[in-house]
Design a protein around this nucleic acid. Structure first.
Length: 143
DNA sequence: CGCATTTGACCCGCGC
DNA sequence: GCGCGGGTCAAATGCG
């Protein structure tokens, strides 16, 4: 699954701000799962609910890999998130499948189509979100 | 009490 | 044929 060509702009020496980084209004969903050790991950809310069903440490690249599944049973959409061991800011999110249901409707979130607010996207970090096709992912013989 | 999350074990596929 | 890696499921625990 090395379909990622040369989008590795995340290898730069990006100064990950540790403090005063809670300015993210629409992304304050950082679930403080202290079980990850010392890595606090802020999952980029894409507007869907995900259920974590597993986590593994890929020693091959010294990175953690979390596996998420759509909260909906009808939804065959899956999400995979890998992040560096020492640099949780380098979060890579890979979406698999397609959602068969509408995304979460943020009723109180006035931050939507306002592109003027977010200059470099929702997350200032080197976030890489790869959206794969539907069956193109040819995952398992899942349903 | 319910639900979400976590950890371990198991299974499958591929490589050598 | 065996081994290793990666991925998924199931069960248990904690918190809201």
């Amino acid at each position: 699954m090395e379909t990622i060509t040369s989008c590795q702009s995340m290898t730069e020496t990006y100064p990950i701000r540790e403090a005063s980084m809670e300015a993210e209004e629409g992304f304050r969903r950082s679930q403080d799962m202290d079980r990850e050790g010392n890595n606090k991950l802020d999952l980029p809310e894409d507007g869907y609910q995900w259920k974590k069903y597993g986590q593994k440490f890929i020693k091959h690249v010294n990175k953690y890999r979390s596996y998420f599944k759509c909260h909906n049973a009808e939804c065959r959409a899956k999400k995979r998130a890998d992040w560096s061991y020492s640099e949780p800011g380098n979060l890579r999110v890979v979406y698999n499948g397609v959602h068969t249901h509408a995304p979460l409707t943020h009723s109180h979130s006035s931050q939507q189509g306002t592109t003027s607010t977010s200059t470099s996207g929702p997350n200032p970090y080197n976030l890489l979100t790869q959206v794969l096709g539907d069956q193109t992912a040819s995952f398992r013989h899942d349903n």
